[in-house]
């Protein structure tokens, strides 16, 4: 999952001309990686096309991931 997400971030960063970090770690802070709110919205929409689910619409208690590790965990938790 992590590799897939990092690959999609790379693809959309290239398409939209965003400068994002190359060296993604579990504890990379998302808002310090070069993605902004719009970047995340596009990433989540693109992942929904790819994975056919948006975990952020499926949660009872909302989670706001701070790091890549937390973001990946959200997708893992809701993978069918």
């Amino acid at each position: 999952m992590k590799e897939k997400i990092v690959a999609i971030i790379g693809e959309i960063a290239a398409e939209y001309g965003w400068r994002v970090i190359d060296d993604w770690q579990e504890d990379s802070v998302l808002l310090e990686s070069g993605l902004d709110s719009l970047g995340f919205a596009i990433l989540v929409a693109r992942l929904e096309e790819e994975l056919e689910y948006d975990p952020f619409t499926m949660m009872d208690e909302p989670v706001y991931p701070r790091t890549l590790g937390e973001f990946v965990a959200v997708y893992d938790r809701y993978a069918s």
Partner: peptide, 12 residues
């Protein structure tokens, strides 16, 4: 507009 859990909507 496509519904977005992050920004309300995004342009599609």
């Amino acid at each position: 507009g496509k519904r977005s859990s992050m920004m309300g909507q995004i342009v599609a």
